[in-house]
Design a protein around this nucleic acid. Structure first.
Lengths: 131, 131
DNA sequence: CAAGTAACTTCCTAAAAGTAAGTAAGTGCG
DNA sequence: CGCACTTACTTACTTTTAGGAAGTTACTTG
């Protein structure tokens, strides 16, 4: 089924801690589609608070996973994009997505969704502005 | 390069929320090596509190990712093991491990290993002319 | 039957996330 | 000019979640 996973070590714990922070996976998933601005991320995620998004983006930048580019054009805009380290996260997100497709059943839109799934299920109608 | 990610949907959000809870990834990583008892998990993780481990195990059981078996032998013992849904998480954890090997640099082992999860190294604040 | 072990639970504090309102730079318009 | 509007965050405050440690239950061993 699966051979042998590398032993539980500090590297893994660090990575798990990173992904173990709320919204990290979702932010990476969106940025894998291309650079996004602050507002676009807020809108795409739907239920994240700006406070936490800001915090998470700073964490990810500090980790060297994303880069922030300020576009000093007439309308000032900032843009977040993945570094190579971030791009390399692709497979993790991809496998997570595949697992979700296989195993997560989408609860009916109406009715009381509970627990873990509840918040997520209510979240984010996908809206993409064409840049 | 990687255009085949499925769209951001409720399923993905649910999965990301699950893995986005502290310790979930680490617990799954350990259980992928085989069934473990409560105490073994506590010991293997080292820095998790029993309160949270207990909570997380209940979450995972409620999600159908792990099963709890009470062994009513002379010494009463409980054991946690992955269901098929949990086993299938293998690739996600594996890719996360590979990413960690490639990109996470282990802090100097010599000296005090301050916490597994190297608290968000507060990076230099970006400045935007604050008063 | 006191002491020990395993598996939790309870209580209390600390850190993280949610909510909402506020700030700052810049454009656009009458 | 100056007031409205937009983007990108911050700040202040509340709620939820996590950490630490002691307590509880069930059963065993001395």
């Amino acid at each position: 089924m699966h051979d042998d996973l590398s032993p539980l070590c500090g590297r893994f714990l660090t990575a798990a801690d990173l992904l173990g922070r709320r919204w990290t996976g979702v932010i990476l998933r969106i940025l894998l589609d291309g650079p996004r601005r602050f507002g676009e991320l807020t809108e795409a995620i739907g239920t994240i608070s700006e406070r936490v998004l800001s915090e998470r983006l700073k964490d990810l930048e500090a980790e060297g996973i994303i880069e922030r580019h300020v576009d000093v054009g007439p309308p000032i805009r900032s843009e977040y994009r993945l570094t190579q380290k971030g791009q390399d996260f692709w497979k993790v997100i991809d496998e997570l997505g595949k697992w979700a497709e296989r195993w997560v059943e989408l609860p009916p839109a109406t009715g009381s969704a509970k627990g873990v799934a509840a918040k997520a299920a209510r979240a984010a109608p996908r809206k993409r502005k064409t840049a």
